[in-house]
Amino acid sequence: MFNSITGTITGKFPKQLFLENNGIEWDINIPDSNLDLLPPVGTEAKIFTWMQHTDTVFALFGFANENERSFFLDLLKVDGVGPKGAVKIMSSAPSSTLMDTLESGDVALLEKIPGVGKKTAGKMMLALKGKLTLHEDLQTFTVPKSSAFSDVISSLVSMGYDRKTVEQKVAELSAKLEPDFNGKSQKEKEDMIFRKIIVELA
């Protein structure tokens, strides 16, 4: 019914996101790992959605990008894993880590996920190994809040630049400039990143 909703983030809580759009504040179920991929409260974000609608349940689930949603939908294919369970699984670790675990066949690691256990881990492996649905043309560059360059990102976003574009540029440049960072202070590193991004986005 809804592919995505774009609005202002008004609240971030464990497995829950509030998003205001045209006077309506949506209460969205979301994996904790996806909350970390989204900008802070008070900023605009695009949330990819999936709706659960039954005789007794009406709930909206949200994700930071299409691949995160695709992984969630893949988890729903596993016998015994419902929407809430899929969110719990995705909250346990970054989706890229979980996908790598499934592709490598590491059942023991899956069993360690809270609420999964040996039986569900086996079902996940049987249903999903080699069958994950991903958008290969979708590249997601993420910079965690703890990133050394989160201040640079915040500064550029406050200047009006798109957060997703800025995060992508920071990810690219921080990797590219790594050899030049030797001996530099944190402030000098931030200045290098900031100046180069301003030039590229001008």
Rank of each mutant, 00 (worst) to 15 (best):
F72K: 15
Y161H: 09
L126Q: 10
M159T: 00
P114I: 00
L173Q: 02
N65H: 15
L19T: 01
K88V: 01
P14L: 09
M51G: 08
K176H: 12
T101F: 04
L38Q: 04
K184R: 14
N3S: 10
D55Q: 15
E68S: 14
G130Q: 03
L173V: 01
I153R: 07
P40S: 11
L110C: 09
L35N: 03
A171Y: 15
L109M: 13
V87L: 13
I28C: 01
D74T: 04
K88D: 10
E44V: 13
Q139Y: 10
D36T: 13
F71H: 12
G7P: 05
L177I: 00
S91F: 06
V143R: 14
G85R: 12
M99H: 06
N65L: 06
K196M: 10
W26R: 07
S91H: 14
K131M: 04
K187R: 15
L132D: 03
K189Q: 14
V116P: 06
L19W: 01
V57W: 06
K184C: 03
N21R: 15
V107M: 09
I9R: 12
L35G: 04
I89Y: 08
K187S: 13
L173W: 00
S158N: 14
H53C: 11
E111I: 07
T49K: 00
F141N: 09
F63R: 15
Y161F: 13
V170Q: 05
T54Q: 12
E200Y: 01
K88F: 00
V157Y: 02
R69T: 01
V87T: 12
L173Y: 03
D191R: 15
M125D: 02
G11I: 00
T140K: 11
W26H: 15
